[in-house]
Nucleic acid binder design. Structure first.
Lengths: 193, 193
DNA sequence: TTAAAATCTTGAACTAGTTCATTTTTTGAT
DNA sequence: ATCAAAAAATGAACTAGTTCAAGATTTTAA
């Protein structure tokens, strides 16, 4: 699905508005393991995935990775806090496969919103959805055990579970990689009965 | 601070826009323990706190409370997922003290945004900030131990720590009330040396 | 002012999840 | 196809945080 038809799930655009949006899109290919954002830099853009797989994560002083978000086809990702405040990032955004992305710059978005307020609306709806989603995640994680968290995540995002290495899933779900391995073994045992 | 001057920290409003906004504000007083939202209902409005203290939480099937958000003076609160999708809430929003609020209805907001796109911008900026904040919270909670989580929260929101009962703080920070009691005792021990 | 209700404290027994060290399996580059 | 590197599995020892139960303190309402 093109980024324009994706936007049109929220709002409808005139020919002119479509063109205006396309001019601020910067297409780019990133290779596996490459970084799109690194801590310290200002995150000057939001990233839209055309195809491939990205994730954002941060590194504790002890060197542990904590995954914040996964992004497959048609998802947006960035260090959002850094993006909206235009202050230094604390996250990495990294390609987990060769990935085609569209970068949408902060200044360009703000300018576009002034010229075409319809985009103000689009980015409002997207931000609201993202916030609602993020609250839902917080909620899921507070109530559930490690096993329950994994099962819920797997039924909701089977494609993510299949596409990212297990240690990344574990760090997203808030458990050690070893423990997720044991959890999955236990689940498999139940299924086989 | 009035809700209008609060809005004007993000955008500036003409006289006419101010009036338009004020007409969709419904002022209301809720007594301690009273609910503004309950699971199952559609959350038809966002709630702005004039003075007092609210919180949102959900109840697990086992009857445990999990606090999602606190809201003191000048904060917004709601079951945001229910609000934006206009689907049944899963959270309670409850008054922890006698509280004056302003309710801002979903339909009224959407109408207002059509008539005055400047509010589209306001609600975009608010939603973006809320999302960034929520990501930051997720990040803080993944990396830290229970003690660290409490210390960080206390330095960032001393007024919340002073104003809500400890068992609510514990359920927000993802630990048992008993353990938070022990954590605080240990911290006090360190401070006294 | 007082009694009931709500909240907080404390300790002992427990458990879900971690850590560490080692082995096995999978992946990817040549 | 082969080999090195990355990822996953496994087991044993450990620990941060939970649960339960009982008592102490604070808050509330009449």
């Amino acid at each position: 699905m093109s980024i324009i038809s994706n936007i049109e799930r929220y709002i409808s655009l005139t020919e002119k508005e479509q063109k205006a949006f396309e001019t601020i899109c910067e297409k780019r290919v990133v290779e596996k393991h490459e970084f799109l954002v690194e801590p310290g830099q200002n995150c000057y853009c939001q990233i839209y995935v055309i195809n491939g797989a990205l994730r954002s994560y941060f590194l504790t002083p002890e060197g542990e990775e904590h995954t914040i978000q996964f992004a497959l086809e048609d998802w947006f990702i960035s260090d959002f806090n850094s993006y909206i405040t235009q202050s230094p990032a604390s996250l990495y955004v990294q390609a987990c496969e060769r990935t085609e992305v569209i970068e949408i710059g902060y200044l360009e978005v703000e300018q576009l919103c002034i010229e075409y307020p319809v985009f103000e609306r689009f980015f409002r709806l997207v931000a609201q959805k993202a916030f609602a989603f993020s609250q839902k995640r917080a909620l899921a994680n507070l109530g559930l055990s490690a096993t329950e968290r994994f099962l819920e995540f797997e039924t909701q995002y089977p494609n993510i579970v299949n596409r990212y290495p297990q240690y990344m899933l574990a760090s997203y779900l808030g458990m050690s990689a070893e423990f997720l391995s044991k959890v999955r073994k236990k689940i498999k045992g139940f299924e086989e009965r």
